[in-house]
């Protein structure tokens, strides 16, 4: 099969993928007080990887990213579930979230919340699930 000439796509992707990945992390972090969060952060992350898939082919990416996406999804949900259990250990109801301010080096006084851990789980779950679906449909042709 003759490969289409996609120089522009390849060049743009190299830059764009980095930007999208950065933006997805930004979306994820801003989720606590502003629009954003684990779900759309994860989806944006997936979008970047999907773009790489489209441009460079699934096999190339598979060689570089060796993680099993199903396991990623499972670990994500596991983290979310365990944060819920963590609340139980402290005698609070399931899924109880707490927050407090911690003095971190470099960042100064930062408010940390256990909800962030939950969100990390959500993001991983979304990334894992979406990529599993995309690779399993796109793999064989």
């Amino acid at each position: 099969m003759k490969r289409p000439n996609d120089v522009i796509l390849r060049t743009v992707t190299k830059v764009a993928a980095v930007i999208i990945l950065t933006f997805s992390i930004h979306l994820f972090i801003s989720g606590h007080h502003f629009p954003g969060g684990g779900f759309i952060g994860g989806l944006t992350f997936t979008a970047a990887i999907t773009l790489l898939f489209l441009v460079y082919g699934i096999d190339t990416i598979r060689k570089n990213v060796s993680a099993d996406f199903k396991a990623v999804a499972a670990i994500g949900v596991l983290i979310s579930a365990l944060t819920g259990v963590g609340g139980m250990m402290a005698g609070k109801p399931f899924l109880y979230q707490s927050s407090g301010s911690v003095n971190l080096p470099f960042l100064g006084d930062t408010i940390l919340a256990t909800a962030v851990l939950f969100d990390v789980g959500v993001a991983l779950a979304v990334i894992g699930t979406a990529l599993t679906i995309i690779t399993s449909i796109g793999d064989d042709r």
């Binding site: 099993d68 199903k70 396991a71 999804a73 499972a74 670990i75 949900v77 596991l78 579930a81 365990l82 819920g84 259990v85 139980m88 109801p93 399931f94």
Partner: peptide, 25 residues
């Protein structure tokens, strides 16, 4: 009556199931 045990029948299979997905072999 507040009771944390109720979540057990839901969360136990989820957690164990996920652990099994990770150790899939």
């Amino acid at each position: 009556m507040m009771n944390n045990l109720i979540i057990g029948p839901i969360i136990i299979p989820v957690i164990i199931g996920l652990v099994l997905v990770v150790f899939k072999n």
